[in-house]
Amino acid sequence: MKHTRVGIIGGGPAGLLLGHLLSARGIENVVLESRTREYVERRQRAGILEQSTVDVLRACGAGERMDRQGLVHEGIELRFDRQAHRIDFPSLTGGRTVMVYAQTEVVKDLIALREGPLLFEAEALSADPATGVVRYRHEGAEHTMTCDVVVACDGFHGIGRASMPAVTTFRRDYPFAWLGILADVPPSCEELIYAHHERGFALHSMRSPHVSRLYLQVDPGDDLADWSDERIWDELETRFAVDGDWKLERGPITDRSITPMRSFVAEPMRHDRLFLAGDAAHIVPPTGAKGLNLAVADVTLLAQALTRWHGVGDESLLDAYSETALRRVWRAEHFSYLMTTMLHRDPHQDPFDDRLQLSQLRYIVGSTAGMTSLAENYVGLPLD
């Protein structure tokens, strides 16, 4: 029977960052990760960091490589009706920007900084909210660990949320999915392009000056085998097309996947000694680039609350955690919903819906208030 102050289930960016923040404050913690280190460091996920996320990583010592290799973006481009419209972030948000830096790299940086126990291939089997007892399997044997507090950062399919005795869930599934690719070709743009087209949505992003990340709206039932490289590039070219001489550069596709689109929130995010953070508590469609950033906001709140509890025995921030975190979660859910429904084409929508989408897009790019609202939400609201 091993004891630790904070048991963290999940060694993704949320769990690793929480562990690092706690260790820096002298709070003992153990991180359990069910996958191998190699898998965790190669798992492709979000790559857009809000200003607040960048600030947190810098402040905790995890920003050195990010600042050398990350790409600062001062805006995004909206494309529709074969026209391109740029949203300038600094002028609309008091100088705030976003950073393109892949989750794989954030994870590598946090693993390199890890000081306390980090067990890979340690599968959490159960977590008792009343006692703080965590059972897990590691190296072929079952183990038991007692914790003053357990934080589940184990994703949508983890055991954390399932261990909560009373949870209300809110869910919305969208009638489309994203076909995402990685390609060994320099990006065809300096900033992200969000394209609305009659054939569906498309997004041009990047992972580095030499690697492009692109997405197509597809049917959730599509088979990857039906999407050849040529078909993918042809469809991207069609949806990104604008009047002028812009050209989409093509290259070898190194990775591809189809991801369903959904929104999900679990309330509350705490029961007794068990706390939820990140995807264990909420999922957002990736259109708003909020998933990783919400996870960082969650564990930053928790680190502050656990530090106060550890230092002076004050549990007020722990008691307020769920309510405080959910305010930000629902704001991000709403923004992601607006971006998703504005840019994607529902397969069942009619010409009336088409005109509403175009009207909203024209309003945003033609109104300072509209552009400001989008920019403020995209770069991220300040942390509480």
Rank of each mutant, 00 (worst) to 15 (best):
I8A: 06
I9Y: 04
G11E: 09
G19N: 03
I27Y: 07
V30Q: 03
Y39G: 01
R43V: 01
A46S: 09
T53A: 14
A62P: 01
R65F: 10
G75D: 13
M99C: 10
R114F: 10
L125H: 03
T131Y: 04
G132W: 07
V134N: 01
V134F: 06
R137Q: 12
H138E: 06
M145G: 01
T146N: 08
F156P: 00
I159A: 05
A162W: 05
T169I: 14
Y174K: 04
P175I: 11
A177T: 00
G180I: 05
L182D: 10
L192W: 11
A195H: 07
E198N: 12
G200D: 07
F201K: 03
H204Q: 13
M206P: 00
V211P: 00
R213M: 11
D223W: 04
E237H: 10
G244I: 12
G244K: 11
E249W: 14
P252W: 11
I253G: 03
T259H: 15
S263I: 09
A266T: 06
R270L: 14
L274E: 09
F275P: 04
P286D: 08
L292D: 00
L294V: 08
A295V: 00
A303R: 03
Q304D: 14
W309K: 09
G313R: 05
D314K: 09
E315S: 13
D319L: 15
Y321A: 04
H344V: 02
H344P: 02
Q349K: 11
P351Y: 10
D354M: 14
Q357G: 12
L358S: 04
Y363E: 13
V365R: 07
G370Y: 05
